Amino acid sequence: MQAPDNILHIWHQFDHFPMETFTKMWYFQQNTKTKQRDVALMKAHYQQYGITGNCFDLAIWLIDAFQKDGIHAYPVGHHLHSEEAHVAVIALDGQGNRYLCDLGDQWIQPILIETEHEDFTDEVLSGFFPAVNVQVSSTDKQIEITYHRPNGKASHQSYDLQPVNMEDFLNAAEFSQHTIDPQPLFECRIPYKREIVHWEFNDWAAFLSTSEGLFKESSYKSIEDWATRIHEVSGYDRQFLITTLKNYQKKQG
């Protein structure tokens, strides 16, 4: 179910890229008409502040990296042009087999979605998603991922596999960048003991999802302390974090 080396080579360049709404909030404050950044600007911001972006930013960036390496890739998504929008990327190997690549949900690695491929299995698998086992059921036009969590509970997510026209995709991205949720969200993959786990800051609380369960971290009273903690797990510029968290605080009133 693993992707071939050429796809993994590109994917692993994004191993330390969080998915967050901080960059959206920060760039929304800039004096620009267009809010969806192109890849060149995203790279410049990454070099300056260590920042990445939301699922649209990550998908645009990933597709660009695949295409520059000669790998055919295209965006897929659901609920586009809405606050519930989520997008991912499909990358194809040399034989046209499709692999789901979802940086927005912080997968550890892409996963095969061709049900007719000899390596495809609908068994429960580890090593693809932080602290969670996954199971893939697929049709030509849709796949469903079942997430089996350490507490025995399961959740599901469906992906429409129809390619999204790039113009439509960029229009949906622009819509998303103009939609600012008052609650800050920051997710990243970090090493913990012998696994890659999921760290999340959401609504002024931080959680660590591991194979041993979900753990809530200590809360902080000051923005400066939260900025320090997020800097520790992500490497984001601390002053950028302070400025952005203060903007969220103002938005919440």
Rank of each mutant, 00 (worst) to 15 (best):
G53Q: 13
Y147F: 14
D225R: 14
T52G: 00
Y49H: 12
I7K: 00
E167Y: 05
S209V: 13
Y147M: 07
A154W: 07
V124M: 10
Q67L: 02
I113C: 00
S234L: 14
C55W: 06
W226R: 07
Q30M: 05
N133L: 05
L41R: 12
I111K: 00
G53I: 13
E123K: 08
E144A: 02
T244P: 02
L80Y: 04
K141Y: 05
S218L: 14
Q67G: 01
T228K: 08
N247H: 08
L125S: 07
A91G: 06
I111T: 05
P75N: 10
T228G: 01
N171E: 15
R37H: 06
H79K: 14
K246L: 09
H16Q: 14
A73Q: 08
P4H: 02
D15A: 02
S126I: 11
W204I: 12
F128R: 14
A173C: 12
R189M: 05
D57F: 01
K193I: 13
S176L: 08
H117D: 09
T244V: 10
Y220V: 11
R238K: 15
A91V: 14
Q183Y: 12
L170K: 08
F169W: 11
I143C: 00
R229M: 06
T32C: 05
F215W: 15
S234K: 09
A91D: 09
V76E: 03
A91Q: 07
E144F: 02
L125I: 11
Y49P: 11
E83Y: 05
N6Y: 10
Q142G: 00
D57P: 04
E212A: 01
E174A: 00
Q135L: 09
L80D: 12
A131D: 15
I10F: 02
K35V: 07
Q106T: 11
V89G: 00
I196C: 01
E187T: 15
I113N: 00
A88N: 13
Q157R: 10
R238G: 01
D203C: 03
H198K: 13
L170P: 06
E224P: 04
Q67T: 13
Q95V: 00
Q30G: 01
F66R: 02
S155W: 10
L245Q: 07
D15Y: 04
G70C: 09
N247K: 08
L161I: 11
I180H: 03
A227H: 08
V134W: 09
W204T: 15
L170D: 07
K24S: 04
E118C: 02
E212M: 07
F186W: 12
F120H: 03
D181T: 11
V233S: 04
K33Y: 06
D122A: 03
L8D: 09
P150V: 10
P18R: 08
H178C: 10
F207P: 03
A59H: 05
L185F: 07
T52N: 10
G53N: 09
M42N: 10
E84N: 11
H9E: 15
W11M: 03
V76W: 02
E212G: 03
A85T: 15
W61N: 06
W26P: 04
M25D: 08
C101D: 08
I230P: 01
